[in-house]
Design a protein around this nucleic acid. Structure first.
Ligand code: SF4
Ligand code: SF4
Lengths: 144, 144
DNA sequence: CGATAGATACATTTTATATGCATGTTATAA
DNA sequence: TTATAACATGCATATAAAATGTATCTATCG
């Protein structure tokens, strides 16, 4: 029961974007260096977030990416569900489980993972930054 | 975000034990054959459940294992926490994350995984079998 | 055009999970 | 009491998932 780094990296990237001044763009290389995440990982995540319209990506010279919505409108539940590929906590079918027809564990697990996501749904990207903007700017050594 | 098979296997084993008539014992080989799980996997799980006093194991000829408590007293939250080795949904320290001091995501994730376990905590092993004893006996071809 | 920056595809490495193999230890039934 | 059934334990291997690396393509700006 663990979130993949892919997802966590995605959150980190969004946090950074949320702190950027309006009209500023980030680049894959910047983020890769900033967080010490392999360029290709960042690439993949940015692409995924772009396709899902969480961020907007611009190719070519002077390109980059930035939030497509206000941080208050970016729901953490949605983001995690997007980045985490395995929504199902257990894949009963795929392992020809003998007791499948009688088993109610899968239902309980489902209820539990819904509860998990529901907690995340209560928060937005803004909740991650609003109370610690100062700390973040110090960490990033930004001046705005 | 997925439970490991190890955990799921554990649940299956407990379900089987809960259905056994009083005073009956199961063996690693029986379970291994019944669920088509590798002998060593069953071995490890049984050992773990034994150490945690969820089941009682008896060595030697005529030995085996059986529930150490009534199914109503075996809490699914406890069992899952026991079998799932990674309780932490994300290991911030271990990846020298730059924004750790300012990040509130870990707290939110923690709240979410607590919610997950709390759902499991509402159920016991008995909940898994009480409403479908008949189905299970058919599946297992038991006659009691 | 030429440089920049994301898009895409595929290969490789690393890590986590699952299984296999061997052997030890203990209890009990013959 | 001795053979044997059954769990205990340690380590090795195989498999699968995740993370990272390499390469090339495409779009855009100046
Ligand atoms: S035991 Fe239940 S939850 Fe687990 S694989 Fe079988 S049907 Fe699914
Ligand atoms: S971003 Fe937050 S949750 Fe993720 S590793 Fe860093 S401190 Fe932990």
């Amino acid at each position: 029961m663990q979130l993949t780094r892919h997802t966590d990296y995605g959150i980190r990237i969004l946090i950074y974007l949320a702190l950027l001044p309006k009209e500023d763009k980030a680049s894959i290389d910047t983020i890769s260096a900033l967080y010490d995440i392999s360029r290709n990982n960042v690439n993949k995540i940015v692409h995924q977030l772009g396709k899902a319209k969480v961020i907007e990506t611009r190719r070519g010279k002077g390109g980059g990416f930035f939030l497509d919505q206000h941080p208050e409108n970016i729901n953490l539940g949605d983001v995690v569900m997007l980045l985490e590929n395995t929504l199902e906590v257990i894949d009963c079918e795929n392992q020809k489980c003998r007791i499948l027809p009688a088993c109610s564990f899968k239902g309980i697990i489902n209820e539990a993972s819904t509860a998990f996501i529901d907690v995340l749904r209560k928060y937005t990207l803004d909740d991650l930054i609003k109370s610690s903007k100062q700390d973040f700017t110090t960490i990033f050594n930004l001046s705005f």
